[in-house]
Structures are given as structure tokens and as C-alpha cells.
């Protein structure tokens, strides 16, 4: 169950990074959330076989991370941990789509490999940017931005409580796992059955806790809406940030920048 501990400490580190004070951190969360949304929409809207065209987009997460002093190694490590999902999603593409679309130095490359590469690249870009966004805005900041952007209260409240109680739940799960390990003496205990029971146990405990938290909220006048006193200020810098990057993303989407660069350089060479 140390996987849980690792997960929680990663989340904790993300949150600590988000407490820094840099120009990127000082931007209004709404600016960063909106810009990132445009980024993601642009990246995922490319065609199935587009790979090269995606490359220019790397600039946004890298600039954001550098400006926000988010260590790229840390981001890369999290990406590595979550990458199996993306790796498996497209794993059959090379087998199903064998039509040769390119040839590099005698090596024939099928459409399947290209689309697989495209999937992985898109995953790295979108997941990476989400991590950098969290590390520069904080989970709570993102929630706040969502609230101000008129995302329904129910959803924002869910997210806020999720972030607050994931640590409590994680601790509880760790204690359960520890209790199991202490009495299974290095074996797998009684197979998978205890894990099922433990999950059930965890669910019941969460219900009981949810009930108590709700009661505590009622005691302090909760009426279905979480009010936060934080105020946001969307200034000129925020506007510039949002418009500037959005324009760049749209340009990347519409103009094939790598091709253009290639033409320019070969053009100059002639």
C-alpha cells in the first residue's frame, strides 16, 4: 500500500509547488484555466496521423513550468507513472493499421505507428499541461476559477471536498493495508478476498465520515453552497496572457509550423 503513500506525497508536493510566488503563480487562475482549456482543445482536435504538427505546442507547458519554477523532472516522473494508460490505449494501432505512410532510410513506417505516436504525444502534452497548471495554480485555485467561470456549484463543491478528504481517505486505506500486512506474514494473505472486503470496509467508513462531515457543515449553516471569501482579480497581464497564448495555439492549429520552418530552411538552402 506504499503506492498510496507515494501518491499522496506527490499530491502534497504539487500543492506545495503551487504555494510559490512567481509571476506565473500570481496570474489569475481563470486566465491559466481558460488558456489551458484552449490548449487542450487545440491539441486533441488534430487529425489521427498528425505528429509533427503537435510539437510546437510543447512550448506552453515548458514556459509555464520554467516561469513557475516547476521542476520538469518531477512532472516527467508523474507522467511516467500514469503513462501505461496511454500506452495501452493505442497498443493495437500498429497491428491493425499496416498501411505504409512513410519511409525513413529504408524503414517502412505504417499508419498504425504514426497514430500510436500521435496518441502518446497528445497524452504527454495534455496530462503534462494539467500537472503544470496544478503546480502553478493549486487545486483550490482551479476550483475557484471553475466556480467563477460558472461551473455548477455541485461540481465545484465535489472537487473541493475531494481534495480535502483524499488525504484522510488515503491515510485510512494505508492503515487498513498495514493491518492486513502485519497479520499475513509476507504471504499474500488469503488471496484477493481480503482486498475486496477492505475496499468495502473503506467505502462504509467513507459513508460514515461523509455523514459526519455533512453534519459538521449543517452545524455551521451549510445551505448547499460553499462560500469562499477569496476574491480574484483579472487584470491586464491576465488578459494578455490569455489572448497571447490563445492566438498562438490557434496559429499552431491552423498553420503547419514545422512544415513552414522546413520549407524556409530548405528554401534558404537552395
Amino acid at each position: 500500500m506504499s503506492a498510496i503513500a507515494t501518491g499522496l506525497s506527490t499530491l502534497d508536493r504539487l500543492d506545495r509547488l503551487a504555494q510559490q510566488d512567481t509571476a506565473i503563480h500570481r496570474l489569475d487562475p481563470r486566465a491559466k484555466v481558460l488558456t489551458t482549456l484552449v490548449f487542450i482543445v487545440c491539441v486533441v482536435s488534430f487529425g489521427k496521423y498528425d505528429v509533427i504538427q503537435l510539437l510546437p505546442f510543447v512550448v506552453y507547458p515548458v514556459v509555464l513550468a520554467a516561469g513557475g519554477r516547476v521542476p520538469l523532472g518531477f512532472v516527467a516522473r508523474i507522467l511516467l507513472v500514469v503513462s501505461p494508460f496511454a500506452l495501452f490505449v493505442g497498443v493495437f494501432n500498429p497491428f491493425l493499421d499496416r498501411q505504409v505512410v512513410a519511409e525513413i532510410g529504408g524503414l517502412q513506417i505504417s499508419g498504425g505507428w504514426v497514430s500510436y505516436a500521435s496518441i502518446i504525444l497528445r497524452f504527454l502534452l495534455t496530462a503534462g499541461v494539467a500537472l503544470v497548471l496544478t503546480a502553478t495554480t493549486s487545486f483550490i485555485g482551479i476550483c475557484l476559477a471553475l466556480e467563477k467561470l460558472r461551473v455548477p456549484d455541485v461540481l465545484v463543491t465535489q472537487l473541493l471536498l475531494l481534495f480535502r478528504y483524499i488525504f484522510v481517505l488515503g491515510d485510512e486505506a494505508q492503515r487498513l493495508g498495514q493491518a492486513r500486512r502485519l497479520r499475513s506474514f509476507g504471504h499474500r494473505g488469503m488471496g484477493l478476498r481480503p482486498y475486496g472486503l477492505m475496499l468495502g470496509q473503506l467505502l462504509l467508513r467513507s459513508f460514515a465520515r461523509a455523514q459526519r462531515v455533512y453534519e459538521a457543515m449543517l452545524c455551521r449553516g451549510f445551505d448547499g453552497r460553499i462560500r469562499m471569501a477569496r476574491t480574484l482579480h483579472f487584470g491586464r497581464a491576465d488578459l494578455l496572457f490569455t489572448l497571447g497564448w490563445t492566438a498562438l495555439f490557434v496559429a499552431f492549429r491552423l498553420v503547419d509550423v514545422p512544415l513552414l520552418l522546413g520549407r524556409l530552411t530548405t528554401g534558404m538552402g537552395q
Partner: peptide, 30 residues
């Protein structure tokens, strides 16, 4: 509920907001 302040056995149940200040401000805001 305004008159009777209730302090729960498990403080984790009672502190549900992102920061301490926001948690303390939750009741007064409501």
C-alpha cells in the same frame, strides 16, 4: 445551530475547507 456550537470528536470531520482561515470563515459567511 447559531446558538449551540458543536465541536466534533474527530476534527477532520469538522475542517473541510481548503485552508484554516476559510474553514473558520465558513460559518460566519453562511
Amino acid at each position: 445551530r447559531r446558538t449551540v456550537g458543536m465541536i466534533f470528536q474527530d476534527s477532520d470531520d469538522q475542517l473541510f475547507m481548503p485552508t484554516v482561515a476559510e474553514d473558520v470563515g465558513f460559518g460566519p459567511l453562511n
